[in-house]
Simulated scan of single mutants.
Amino acid sequence: MTTPSGSTRIGPAADESYTDTVRRLAAAQKSGKGAPAYSRFVNRKLGRLFAAAGFHLGLTPNGITAVSAAFSFAGIILLATVEPSWWLGVLITVLLVLGYALDAADGQLARLRGGGSVTGEWLDHMVDCLKISTLHMCVLISFYRFWDIDERWLLVPIGYAIVAAVSFFAQILNEQLVRNAGLKRGTAPSATSTPDERPSVVVSLLKIPTDYGLLCLIFVLLGAADLFLAAYTLMFIGSAAYLLAATVKWFGQMRDLDRGGS
């Protein structure tokens, strides 16, 4: 059986239940090394449930990416166009959380179907980059249009957008440079854990300020201007501080690669 695009449709075995698929995904879960707490302990599990459902429905990873984008950008557009209130904050939070969970599902669905594709990885990163940038720009628009605050607070979402974009770019660039260095040496260095290396819970907790999932959750405070502004600003400060510290570490890692180290 083929999909309309002509690609072979890949689905579960006849005797595999939804629960069996979820268990199979859990056993093949990627390492949690480097992932902040919400993304690691909550979002990946939610993504697993959506990936298994997509597998049984015959969806493709790119299809899941498109659905994820629809939820995320629906919330982002509401943020810029509707006056803040409690109901809006809850709605935006739900849309962003669902979008993020589906974002974790596309890669897991690809593994269920036998592996991902360059096209899928490219699409996933492009959507993520657009989502991260537009979210903070729409916070800026909301502040400007609807909030009675000092204009200096507008610098917070501007700074947050810069930090988020640089952090995302650094993550992708670091992975690519490490991979290229490994290919040149005939090895394959990786940012993921080895089977014997258990990801640190402490590291995941320390990365909470950088957690996109936590950022999604604070929009539930949108109806309380002071609380949201405080939480959003603290997230920005934490993310900026982490980026500054991580940049020093990353620069040292790149110097090690230049010297031929691992």
Results as ranks from 00 to 15, higher is better:
43 N>L: 13
18 Y>S: 10
113 R>F: 07
183 L>C: 09
87 W>V: 11
194 T>A: 15
53 A>I: 07
62 N>Y: 00
213 G>I: 03
229 L>S: 05
10 I>R: 08
24 R>T: 08
98 L>I: 05
119 T>M: 06
77 I>G: 01
114 G>M: 09
154 L>T: 02
6 G>W: 04
126 M>H: 14
43 N>I: 08
122 W>H: 08
63 G>I: 07
96 L>F: 07
214 L>V: 11
130 L>E: 04
76 I>T: 04
217 L>G: 05
201 V>P: 12
180 N>K: 12
155 L>P: 10
171 Q>R: 12
205 L>G: 11
28 A>S: 13
90 V>C: 07
34 G>K: 00
89 G>S: 09
175 E>T: 13
185 R>P: 02
95 L>C: 06
18 Y>F: 15
74 A>I: 09
178 V>N: 04
125 H>W: 05
209 P>S: 06
95 L>D: 00
222 L>N: 02
162 I>Q: 06
63 G>T: 12
137 M>F: 15
261 G>E: 14
217 L>T: 12
51 A>V: 09
42 V>A: 10
112 L>R: 01
72 S>Q: 09
244 L>C: 05
26 A>C: 07
88 L>F: 06
250 W>P: 01
2 T>C: 12
146 F>T: 07
85 S>W: 14
33 K>G: 00
50 F>I: 06
188 A>K: 13
192 T>K: 14
39 S>Y: 10
261 G>F: 15
51 A>I: 10
222 L>S: 00
45 K>C: 14
146 F>M: 08
142 S>I: 01
247 T>A: 08
100 Y>P: 05
